[in-house]
Design a protein around this nucleic acid. Structure first.
Lengths: 347, 347
DNA sequence: GTGAAAGCGCTAACAT
DNA sequence: ATGTTAGCGCTTTCAC
């Protein structure tokens, strides 16, 4: 039984360059980082040899000294709260991850998805990254606390519900989008409208309920809010649908997540409530479910690219110590599908 | 003008633990890594204090010593070859990135998307990662060379066309899927079939053309292959469509990418060639384009999750020095949409 | 069985 | 203007 261990060859070190250039390691470091006092001549000469030897500073070693490592983290609180990191059909998160990763690359940054760094074991590199994007922070979020405590720069997707003064955040402007949906419902003749939201204690859930109640009040509708934990997924939506029907069949239902909406559709159908003929249905997050269900469910299409771009801008400014340009609101587009189109309205 | 630099506070160090436990730093290291010769008693005592102090070894420092850093890289050769990292409508790559990131998290690994590490400047942490997934390596791929040279473990999505003996790869079984598409075309009465493939020198392009030619020969069809660079996108497809029509209008066209297919559809339509009535159209990669075009384009739906899971398995085995279990073939599903459905066939 | 110390590659303070 | 050196936090010989 022989163990074959392939030695990981390290590359050219600063010492190699120093030796070749006939200077000290300090000189090399200075030359390449444009620090210290070196004659232009030696600086150039050193740079040339470094180039020639294809020298690359080891990020680990620099990081150990406190220099930036050229990588940022992405913490998705909504994913941390789910039971699985890749629930079937939910492409919202993967789209954010993919978009942010690709855009970070264009800026010479690497991005890594990191599990909740307050849970042990801590993802190894987590506390050595240059900064963080935290999506949908919770009330009194321990992750934010940790980052604050460690002095690690961060920005958030969605406002931090615990810190009204914090401005380094961006979001799809859900509030006005929600209003648009209610108006869409009302225009189709809906008089009673139900909101089904999630239970994660984030701005998304808090603000949307507030928006809903305000809107109800403004048009004289009695608010009816139902809750279902995000992690309950379709199943949760199905159960709530039963409860809603038991209470009183509304003219329209708005669900937060695509999975909830898919479940509600199933539940309503099971109880003989026709969508959209009897009750209109829409959701604030698009997903495979909403696109492929029968009828297809009206949903807000998120523009992940636009939002992640804003977040990266904010984070880079924050890392550079520049003043905050936030918050930044991007706009989602409400796509009307069959689930909220009345036959006599569309015809 | 005062510069506010927030000090990044490091956490508890091994020295702190050693001091508190009344032992040397070496003892702490040994106790926590289960190495060396320590009495069970001290080992336990040290572990307790470490736990109590919430000690976390610094990944940078460990990495500098050659230990794994708990993070792996993802290099997408197809993205490196494009002009932009997030081309509009192409969700194939983001799906892979998202799926792989989420699954890696479930295994306690962080995954980061890395730009071509042979291009300078090298992404800082690139050469310190524990391993790599390289998607669609090119012939004589310099990235593979680099990883080999540095002794960094890697697996590939799609076989390495230059290394027939290399087995640590997985892929969606495009060969049999392609055959199925040709048969689908043939069943719909197509006699002349055109293949439009990309130009990246990867297994995908090489093998699919070989499959095509073999199939043509087996059924006595004269092969017609057209090329369009992946980075040419829809535009490239459009131009090729013109060329195809100029040569001779075929009964069916199979395109590699969704963007090419979308372009071909546009091009054909512009020339008055009706899809699917005159010519059938399908593509091997699903995308926004193929789902939302008119008519919707038949496409292979990739199961990113299944494939990335296989890749992570292979990579972890490779890192652990276990024997290869590859290659692994996963299966895509060909979804027939309007673009390849003959009216009299479906009716 | 345990501690002291070297050193991973780098940066920054201090000498010269 | 350049070199010397002390660490960053950790693992790993090597003495004791």
């Amino acid at each position: 039984m022989e163990e074959v261990v392939v030695a990981r060859s390290k590359g050219v070190t600063i010492r190699d360059v120093a030796q070749r250039a006939g200077v000290s390691v300090a000189a090399v470091s200075m030359a390449l980082n444009d620090t210290g006092t070196l004659s232009a001549a030696t600086r150039l000469r050193i740079r040339a040899t470094a180039e020639e030897m294809e020298y690359q500073a080891d990020a680990l070693a620099r990081g150990l000294r406190g220099s930036p490592v050229g990588a940022i983290g992405l913490v998705m609180r909504s994913l941390d709260a789910l039971s699985e990191y890749a629930p079937p059909g939910v492409d919202l998160f993967t789209r954010y991850i993919g978009a942010a990763s690709a855009q970070a690359m264009d800026r010479g940054l690497s991005l890594m998805l990191v599990r909740d760094p307050t849970k042990r074991p801590t993802p190894p590199l987590a506390l050595s990254l240059d900064g963080y994007i935290v999506t949908m922070p919770h009330v009194d979020d321990p992750v934010i606390d940790l980052l604050e405590r460690r002095g690690i720069p961060y920005v958030t997707l969605g406002r931090d519900p615990s810190r009204p003064d914090f401005t380094d955040w961006a979001t799809e402007d859900e509030i006005s989008t929600f209003r648009r949906i209610y108006e869409h419902f009302a225009a189709a003749g809906a008089r009673s409208i139900v909101l089904l939201r999630g239970t994660d204690p984030n701005a998304w859930n808090i603000d949307s309920e507030a928006t809903y109640r305000a809107w109800c009040e403004s048009v004289g509708i009695t608010p009816r809010v139902y809750l279902s934990a995000e992690r309950a997924g379709e199943r949760g939506g199905e159960e709530v649908a039963q409860a809603i029907v038991d209470d009183e069949i509304p003219d329209a239902i708005l669900c937060h997540t695509g999975r909830q909406a898919a479940g509600v559709l199933t539940g309503l159908t099971a109880r003989g409530v026709a969508v959209p003929d009897r009750t209109l249905l829409a959701t604030a997050s698009d997903s495979e479910h909403t696109r492929h269900s029968r009828p297809a469910i009206s949903a807000v299409e998120l523009h992940a690219e636009e939002t992640t771009l804003a977040l990266l801008d904010l984070l880079q400014a924050r890392i550079a110590g520049e003043p905050s340009a936030g918050p930044i609101l991007t706009t989602g587009r409400f796509r009307v599908r069959a689930s909220s189109r009345r036959a006599h309205t569309s015809g």
